[in-house]
Amino acid sequence: MLTPLTVAVAVAALLLAAWCAYAALRGQPVKDWHYLGMAVVLLLTLVQLAIGVVQLSGGQRPSGDTTVVFASYLVAVPLCLPVVAMVSLGERSRWGSATVAAGALVLAVLQLRLDDVWAGGVSVG
């Protein structure tokens, strides 16, 4: 797995989470700039998905018998932001921003798990 990209996605997701949490604290809905931020992070996760698929099809495997788990995490990652973006479109209040922040946080945690699983995985989850 490409560790620099994993770190980059995690950091970008955390920044997005902080940004949206700030908007939520100030009682503001997500604005166009936030959606642009989501798009950037989403793009990074799609690149990650592509690289992951290439690596898997090239015969590289996570250490340990966890290919299925790894693949499902890989697919789950790019789904986070579109889902919360949809939710925030329907909830034009601070709670929409809080939801996007939560989704970005989940994304960051998934990056951690992705790295874990690739390295052999502590336990399945």
């Binding site: 499902s72 789950a76 889902v83 939710v87 329907g90 909830e91 709670w95 809080a98 939801t99 939560a102």
Partner: peptide
């Protein structure tokens, strides 16, 4: 609605996570 939206999202995430 409102805070409920955040709760629904988090519960949705946990449903998918725990179920898979």
């Amino acid at each position: 609605d409102g805070p409920g939206r955040l709760l629904v999202t988090l519960y949705g995430v946990f449903t998918v996570g725990a179920a898979s």
